[in-house]
């Protein structure tokens, strides 16, 4: 009974040693199966299959595949040998080779770090109230607005002519500024407010003048009783 217990304990320990690696390979998808031991012995199979050219680069870039190669020696038993020879001879492994093609996506699933924006000094104590996107050098970058109507300033990213249109709120804000990887809305300009009012008054006056000229000299006579 004691021996049985000892054997059971050893089995558990051995299982505990190798099981995580096996699970880890399974976590990489079907590519894990190749790492299980087929590298050394069934190299001919890999050579015949064009799809297996990718495992070379994959094994070179992944430490886990190197470890799996060492583990293949541990699993050098018949089961792996047999399964590799029979499976690779048929179409099954070939189809699984496509898994290596997909495994390229693993490289893109890296860690994503969230970052807080670095605001310009004028907005150091402000909190963005509007967010959008703009393009800088062909790249899409975030855009932030601060306070009332500041989103109109960011609208100039897509419609720059709004900066010259007094009838649009964007006229009364500065251009968006690019600062540390993001666009930030321009500030409200009182000078542009006064300038815009003057332009509007002038336009209204000009229209009135034109209408008066069209109206035949600009005076009419009426009599009331």
């Amino acid at each position: 009974m004691k021996r049985l217990t000892t054997l059971l304990a050893v089995f558990v320990v051995v299982l505990g040693l190798f099981a995580p690696e096996a699970f880890g390979q399974r976590g990489f998808g079907r590519s894990g199966g190749f790492g299980g031991g087929g590298f050394g012995r069934s190299s001919g199979g890999f050579g015949r299959s064009g799809g297996f050219s990718s495992p070379r680069s994959y094994s070179g870039s992944s430490g886990s595949f190197n470890r799996s190669r060492s583990s293949s020696s541990t699993f050098g038993g018949g089961s792996f040998n047999r399964s590799s020879s029979s499976t690779f001879g048929r179409s099954g492994p070939t189809s699984s080779s496509s898994g290596f093609g997909r495994s390229g996506s693993f490289g893109s699933t890296g860690r994503i770090n969230s970052t807080s924006i670095n605001r310009p000094p004028i907005y150091r104590d402000s909190v963005p109230t509007y967010t959008g996107y703009g393009y800088y050098g062909g790249s899409r970058v975030p855009a932030y607005g601060y306070g009332f109507f500041s989103g109109y300033s960011l609208g100039m990213l897509s419609n720059p002519w709004l900066h010259y249109a007094p009838w649009h709120p964007a006229f009364y804000y500065g251009r968006p500024m690019y600062y540390d990887g993001a666009y930030h809305a321009g500030e409200f300009s009182f000078f542009r407010l006064i300038f815009g009012i003057a332009i509007i008054v002038f336009v209204v006056w000009l229209i009135a003048k034109i209408l008066r000229l069209i109206g035949g000299g600009g005076i009419k006579y009426t009599t009331y009783r």
Partner: peptide
């Protein structure tokens, strides 16, 4: 008048 002709109105 701002828009249109000015008016000279005579109240008889």
């Amino acid at each position: 008048r701002l828009f249109g002709a000015d008016e000279v109105a005579t109240y008889a």
